[in-house]
Design a protein around this nucleic acid. Structure first.
Length: 659
DNA sequence: CGTAAGATAACAGGCATTGG
DNA sequence: CCAATGCCTGTTATCTTACG
């Protein structure tokens, strides 16, 4: 039994007898089989403790050309594995340092040349390490993305929740009170009371006040108050034929409220009192003097409030209700139906279906988990006002992207307390059929605007900037499939970039006509003019190229992207003689490049007969052609001189043709 | 020197089959 | 069940080129 030597850190490759064996399968007892990937005829089984528990018999041989690693080679590759591992794990990894040190260390110990031969080449190692380094980064990003996808809400679910919220907003509060039917019995009860205090409604749900005559009592009290010192006023919104709500929209405290009501009902001494809260800021505007609170029980604590906003106050339902009522009443759109909080609640009681009457422009304000305000609407601002299609598309305007679903991308807000203001602003714009998408609001001014609305009773347009050149984005249903990079396609399909690459290749092999754009330098041409020497500067280069371009009828300003002089790549061996006088000209489009290349031969008979135009080649391409030239000359040289066929253009029997 | 992108050979690993 | 072998599909590592 001997210990096995793992080649990589993932324990997928082992070294056995200096051959690389790869993991095949796990056996039932936990041992792992490895086999030679090339010939597959040699396999070794390794148990859990990394000990070899089965070896191929002595007669087994590697078939084919399986690579046997030299000792030095394995040492070099192992060192390389370590460097790569460091690149993955060490945050402060420096490639040049690690690579240099590794190379130096090995060359001190072993044969200099062998190490140089087997140690990975610098560019390869650099790129690989850089990739490994990024892998770590990518992993972090991937974790975040996974988190995102796990938490993401499907739009259908999101939408269901939203509509459910509209149709059953009390469900949360009434989980333990399933006596909803009781409300039906009391529906004749006047709206005033229903809407004045939600606490009464909650009390009704508990049946505490079931047999109490609210209306008479309330009217009696009202009358007595009118006759008395305090004068009260109930404000009606004429346009909507409904009262401006000044209900306290606090829901969280329902439990305590119910508790406080209970002992009272037992005594049976109910009274309705009218409390007057001092409004702040004090105002003479009667139409907004609506902060009086009518309570059914003096012992119920009333939270005093006013509409004016402090610096970072979160907007309550009543703030939004007020503004929505204003928008509705001042809108010129007769088809507009704008539902604020209490209207939404009223709709529920009437079993309203949000899909009804699609011809209406509908705007709903939706409270999400008591934390956030968003707008749900069927108004599509990009459609004309007259186009009242019967098909409703629903749009969500959410300035915070709270649920990470957002259909219409709007400007992001900075702090989290302004969502209510944004909801109002969106509704205001939508009511005028303007697209909130195009506007960026000044959050600070929004509060001031709202407060001036409270003070003076007139809601100015919120201050905004128009964003003109923004691309409208509606997520996530429009995944456009234009020209995408390999990596993007891969991400879309959920496969690796290589898969895209190989699939493309397969497609290309089986179906023709794929016009896949290739990277590289296809737009460049080499200009070599043997009449002139080396240009001293760029201007001189341009002067040299221009007459040639003119002769070819090519307009420089339109087609030439840029040009530059290139130097000889193997200046090392023959510096003095190897001076390349070549200018690379890059064209903006392929047509011009092809024209230049095609027409190049017409130069031969002209004054530019010494100017040569060839496709720009990469170093390896040039090397390949050099090799081919050499072979050509060799082959041509083998022919007896009289048998060498030289045609009219002086070509030899063997031309250059890369395979 | 670091990085990006695409091409490609080698590789990973599941599945199926055959034989002992 | 283990071992040997082959196939398929997608992955990984490397190479090449380019850019700033």
């Amino acid at each position: 039994m001997e210990k096995i030597e793992y080649f990589d850190l993932k324990k997928c490759i082992i070294l056995f007898d200096n051959y690389k064996l790869h993991k095949v399968a796990s056996n039932a007892d936990g041992s792992v089989r490895f086999r030679c990937q090339t010939c597959k005829s040699i396999s070794v089984t390794v148990d859990k403790t990394d000990l070899i528990c089965r070896k191929p018999d002595a007669s087994s041989r590697h078939l084919g050309q399986c690579k046997k690693y030299f000792t030095i080679e394995t040492i070099c590759l192992k060192n390389y594995e370590e460097i790569k591992h460091d690149a993955r794990t060490e945050p402060s990894f420096s490639f040049s340092k690690s690579y240099g040190e590794g190379l130096q260390q090995l060359q001190e110990q072993y044969d200099l040349q062998l190490v140089a031969q087997y140690y990975p080449k610098e560019p390869t190692a650099r790129v690989t390490c850089s990739k490994n380094k990024n892998q770590e980064k990518d992993l972090q990003i991937q974790l975040i993305q996974e988190d995102f996808y796990q938490k993401r809400t499907e739009f259908s679910i999101y939408f269901t929740n939203l509509t459910h919220r509209i149709t059953h907003p009390y469900e949360q509060d009434l989980d333990d009170v399933d006596q909803y039917k009781d409300t039906e019995e009391e529906e004749e009860m006047e709206k005033i009371i229903e809407q004045t205090i939600s606490k009464i409604k909650l009390a009704k749900l508990k049946n505490s006040y079931k047999n109490f005559d609210f209306i008479d009592n309330f009217r009696e009290r009202l009358k007595s108050q009118e006759n008395g010192v305090i004068q009260t006023q109930v404000v009606y919104d004429q346009e909507n034929n409904s009262m401006v709500s000044n209900r306290c929209s606090k829901r969280k405290g329902t439990q305590e409220e119910k508790e406080s009501i209970k002992p009272k009902t037992k005594t049976g001494t109910l009274s309705i009192e009218i409390k007057q809260e001092k409004q702040s800021p004090p105002t003479t505007s009667t139409s907004f003097d609506n902060s009086r609170i009518y309570t059914a029980d003096e012992r119920i604590q009333v939270e005093p409030f006013n509409f004016a906003l402090s610096d970072d106050q979160w907007l309550m339902g009543r703030h939004i209700d007020l503004a929505f009522d204003y928008i509705q009443s001042h809108s010129r759109n007769s088809f507009l139906f704008i539902a604020n909080n209490w209207k939404c609640e009223e709709l529920i009681r009437n079993n309203f279906l949000i899909h009804e009457s699609p011809e209406m422009d509908k705007i709903f304000v939706v409270n999400v988990n008591n934390l956030h305000w968003i707008i749900l609407t069927n108004i599509n601002p990009s459609e004309s006002e007259n186009n009242q299609s019967l098909e409703q598309n629903w749009f969500v305007y959410d300035n915070q992207n709270f649920h990470r679903v957002h259909m219409v991308q709007s400007e992001h807000q900075i702090s989290s307390n302004d969502c209510g203001l944004f909801a109002i602003a969106y509704a205001q714009l939508l009511a005028e059929r303007l697209d909130p998408f195009n506007y960026k609001f000044d959050q600070r001014l929004m509060r001031i605007t709202y407060n001036s609305f409270i003070t003076f009773g007139f809601l100015y347009d919120f201050y905004f900037e128009i964003i003109a050149e923004k691309q409208k984005q509606i997520f996530p249903f429009n995944v456009s499939c234009g020209e995408k990079k390999q990596i993007e396609i891969a991400k879309l399909l959920g496969v690796s970039p290589k898969c895209v690459s190989s699939t493309e290749k397969r497609y290309e092999e089986t179906c023709s006509g794929s016009d896949r754009s290739r990277p590289g330098r296809r737009r460049k041409l080499n200009f070599r003019d043997e009449r002139l020497g080396i240009g001293a500067n760029e201007d001189e280069d341009i002067e040299k190229v221009d007459p040639v371009l003119n002769a070819l009828n090519i307009d420089r300003s339109k087609t030439v992207k840029r040009q530059r002089r290139i130097k000889s790549s193997n200046s090392g061996d023959n510096t003095s003689k190897k001076v390349l006088d070549m200018i690379v000209v890059e064209f903006t489009d392929d047509a011009a490049r092809l024209k230049a290349l095609r027409d190049a031969r017409t130069l031969r008979g002209t004054e530019h007969k010494d100017a040569y135009i060839n496709p720009d080649k990469t170093a390896s391409e040039r090397a390949l052609e050099r090799e081919l030239r050499k072979r050509r000359n060799e082959l041509n040289g083998k022919f007896p001189l009289n048998q060498v066929r030289i045609d009219s253009e002086g070509r030899h029997r063997y031309g250059i043709k890369p395979d």
